[in-house]
């Protein structure tokens, strides 16, 4: 493997870590709202969050490219704020990854919140805990397993993305070239040895991640009091 390959691995790890942290921050309130709301907007919002599950990554990448490009609404906004435009930058990749991996974080957390049921929150209310207090002292600890699952899936899914990255980030070494794109490049150039090294590494990584996910989700839940 070349130094460029190691830089791709480091970039991929940075992208996935940052994306996962941002997703836990952004996705948790969305999951909480989806788990608790009786609003008629629940269905549409849930569907939008789930869209990346079924959309071809090129479609998502295409629209992100258009809206964030110099002539798109988001692009104009970021330009006006002095941030430049996001496509073909690392922050652009992060934004795209957050949207692309959103359902993999929101859904496990939402399921975990829903599994708690209404009772523990009622109990907390009868014990003087306000809504925010209840969220941190009851909801988050009881949904702990859901958060771990969400983090594993969000991280792994971001590592595995290809289409959105290619559309949004292109292939700039050290800036936007992640492992999946690096493998593609090697194969294009008929460099099968480094392609094998990276691809094999991805298989091993994915196996370990899914094994960890299995352990987290399959270990027995503590009995409810």
């Amino acid at each position: 493997m070349t130094p460029a390959d190691f830089s791709a691995i480091r970039l991929t790890a940075e992208l996935a870590t940052l994306t996962t942290l941002l997703l836990l921050l952004v996705g948790t309130p969305i999951a909480w709202w989806l788990a608790r709301t009786e609003s008629r907007w629940k269905g549409p919002v849930a569907a939008v969050v789930a869209l990346p599950l079924v959309l071809p990554p090129t479609v998502l990448g295409f629209y992100l490219l258009v809206t964030m490009g110099p002539h798109g609404p988001v692009g104009r906004l970021t330009s006006a704020l002095g941030l430049g435009v996001l496509p073909f930058t690392f922050p652009g990749l992060v934004v795209a990854s957050v949207l692309y991996s959103m359902p993999f974080v929101v859904q496990p957390v939402q399921n975990a919140f829903e599994a708690i049921g209404a009772r523990p929150f009622e109990v907390a209310a009868t014990l003087r805990a306000g809504p925010l207090d209840t969220f941190f002292s009851v909801a988050v600890p009881l949904a702990r397993r859901g958060f771990v699952s969400a983090a594993i899936l969000g991280f792994a899914h971001t590592v595995g993305e290809f289409g959105v990255v290619l559309m949004m980030g292109g292939n700039i070494p050290g800036v936007t070239r992640v492992v999946s794109v690096a493998i593609y490049d090697h194969v294009e150039a008929s460099e099968y040895a480094p392609a094998h090294a990276l691809a094999g590494g991805m298989v091993l990584f994915s196996f370990v991640v899914m094994l960890a996910f299995h352990w987290v989700s399959a270990s027995p839940r503590r009995r409810a009091g």
């Binding site: 009772r119 523990p120 009622e122 109990v123 009851v138 600890p141 009881l142 702990r144 503590r222 009995r223 409810a224 009091g225």
Partner: peptide, 10 residues
């Protein structure tokens, strides 16, 4: 006090 004790399991 609820019908089921409803202790916080964590």
């Amino acid at each position: 006090v609820f019908q089921e004790a409803s202790l916080f399991p964590h």
